[in-house]
Computed example of a mutant assay.
Amino acid sequence: MALSAATAARWVERWECQQQRYAVDREERFTVIADVVEYVTAGRTSPLIVDLGCGPGSLVARLAGRLPDAELLAVDADPLLLELGRTHYAHAARYVEAVIGAPGWLDRLALDRPLDAAVSTTALHYLGEPALRRVYGQLAARLRPGGVLINGDHLHQGTPRLSDIAAAVGRRRAERLRAYRHEDWDSWWAAVACDPELTALLAARRRCSLPAGEDCHPTLTEHTALLRAAGFQHVGPVWQFGNSHVLVAVR
């Protein structure tokens, strides 16, 4: 049975709310990423942009609104989240199921030209250092000269003490914005499991090999070094609040 538009809309709305618990100033971070993409693709006809770890399409939908002439690809390993995005934001992007960093994952995108931009939010932290090194190199090879990789994520500072302070700053900001009034990740998924319209998608999710988070969390400095080693010429954060960053790497 096809997922109904009403069900997809309901669960995407709940997703948007629960994600505010985890991303400090989430909407502003999306806006900054869109600002960067718009700036670096100005004057280009039908820029090609891929969203890595798109979930139910939160970022790609915002990019589609800002860049209506862009060709957008949305990539995720989770069939349930992908179907929510494919149904709710049907015209925003072409949705592709793939595990980022797995053998042949880029081939599944069927790219017919170099990328203008690769973006990601709160997804690449699942990759450890070896996988990040590999993925950064693969993306550098697929981006055009001057193309960008933009990663909005929680990136630790250079020392544990600074990371702790930055995390505390982020928590206080979230408290002021009342972000913790929203349901959390576990509650959202528990509620999903009770919706009969999502039963088949949840079963498909349980059968697939979703990436597990690794214990290694590279710092901002380490991410920067990996990106430079991959061939990016200019690397640095353009926005930060607490440990939440928008890190830009120019090919």
Rank of each mutant, 00 (worst) to 15 (best):
Y95M: 14
Y95H: 09
E97V: 08
A98T: 01
A98D: 00
A98Q: 10
I100D: 05
I100R: 02
G101L: 05
G101P: 12
G101Q: 12
A102R: 11
A102I: 05
A102L: 08
A102F: 09
P103G: 11
P103I: 07
P103A: 06
G104W: 04
L106N: 13
D107S: 07
R108T: 10
R108F: 13
R108M: 14
L109N: 05
L109P: 07
A110E: 15
A110S: 15
L111G: 01
D112E: 14
D112Y: 12
D112W: 14
P114C: 11
P114G: 05
L115T: 02
L115F: 03
L115P: 08
D116Q: 13
D116W: 06
D116V: 09
A117S: 02
A117T: 04
A117W: 12
V119N: 03
S120W: 00
T121F: 15
L124Q: 04
L124G: 01
H125P: 05
Y126A: 05
L127D: 05
E129L: 13
P130W: 01
P130H: 03
A131D: 12
A131N: 08
L132V: 00
L132T: 09
R133T: 11
R133Q: 10
R133E: 14
R133Y: 01
R134M: 06
R134S: 15
R134G: 07
R134Q: 11
V135G: 02
V135H: 01
Y136P: 04
Y136V: 15
Y136K: 14
Y136W: 14
Y136Q: 15
G137C: 07
G137I: 02
G137R: 01
A140S: 13
A140L: 08
A141G: 09
A141P: 08
R142Q: 09
L143W: 09
